[in-house]
């Protein structure tokens, strides 16, 4: 599903150069649930953004679904992101002035689905996360856990094969965190590949594989459970 060879990413600002990723190697197989841990500033978010084609890299190779993404232009990368990748963020990143329905609608719009198809998918995705009745509510009218479930619904609506989550439970209490984790596990069990950054060791332990990033490199890989 995902294969990175010797990926390097350098952020150059006026004063310093930050090597966020250094010769980063990683493969993730189809259907895996991988958690990523590591100290703050070690490059986890950078890795996720590169994996999700939101950020470019300086050197190395990255194959997504067998396709070399280095040669793609912005439009092609966006299309790939739209079709294959779902994003979930720590801060939910719902669009505050759109109701839940319209929030989930966003990726589908760029996909070019018909309005009937979009409607079907939005309702299904919201039902899936148990918020169908709130479709006309604004994000600010929901709790944090509910907002994150909307974000998950939004990520799922396009049926991506690959879900990238950056500390999705970071802003939630442990009960809500567990609910979100359970939802992700359910999604994974249906075949979606998930890579999730987390600081919570108990959550990390529940995945099939945990990788630790230190200083821009994979320092440790632990096979925790049998792949399905």
């Amino acid at each position: 599903m995902l294969r990175m060879n010797k990926i390097s990413k350098v952020f150059s600002t006026d004063l310093i150069e930050t090597h966020a990723l250094r010769e980063f190697d990683l493969s993730v197989a189809e259907g895996e649930f991988v958690t990523v841990t590591g100290p703050s500033g070690s490059g986890k978010t950078t890795f996720l953004n590169i994996a999700g084609l939101l950020e470019t890299f300086n050197s190395g190779e990255y194959f997504l679904d067998g396709e070399d993404v280095a040669s793609l232009n912005d439009r092609q990368r966006s299309q790939l992101r739209n079709q294959k990748i779902g994003f979930i963020f720590q801060s939910f990143n719902l669009i505050p002035d759109l109701d839940l329905f319209d929030n989930v609608d966003v990726p589908l719009r760029y996909r070019g689905f018909s309005s009937a198809e979009r409607k079907k998918r939005i309702n299904y995705a919201l039902e899936r996360v148990g918020l169908a009745a709130r479709a006309k509510h604004l994000p600010s009218q929901l709790s944090g856990g509910q907002q994150q479930r909307v974000a998950i619904a939004r990520a799922l609506a396009g049926e991506p094969r690959f879900l990238l989550a950056d500390e999705p439970t970071g802003n939630l209490d442990s009960l809500m965190a567990r609910q979100v984790m359970e939802l992700l596990e359910e999604i994974n069990s249906e075949g979606t590949t998930i890579v999730m950054v987390t600081h919570d060791p108990s959550l990390a332990r529940r995945s099939q594989r945990n990788i630790q990033i230190i200083d821009g490199q994979v320092s440790d890989q632990q096979q925790l459970a049998q792949a399905v």
């Binding site: 912005d74 966006s78 992101r81 990143n93 669009i95 966003v106 760029y110 996909r111 939004r154």
Partner: peptide, 14 residues
């Protein structure tokens, strides 16, 4: 919002 839209698959052109 533009960042979110980009993450969800909008191209720069869009």
């Amino acid at each position: 919002e533009a960042g979110v839209r980009r993450a969800l698959g909008a191209s720069k052109g869009q």
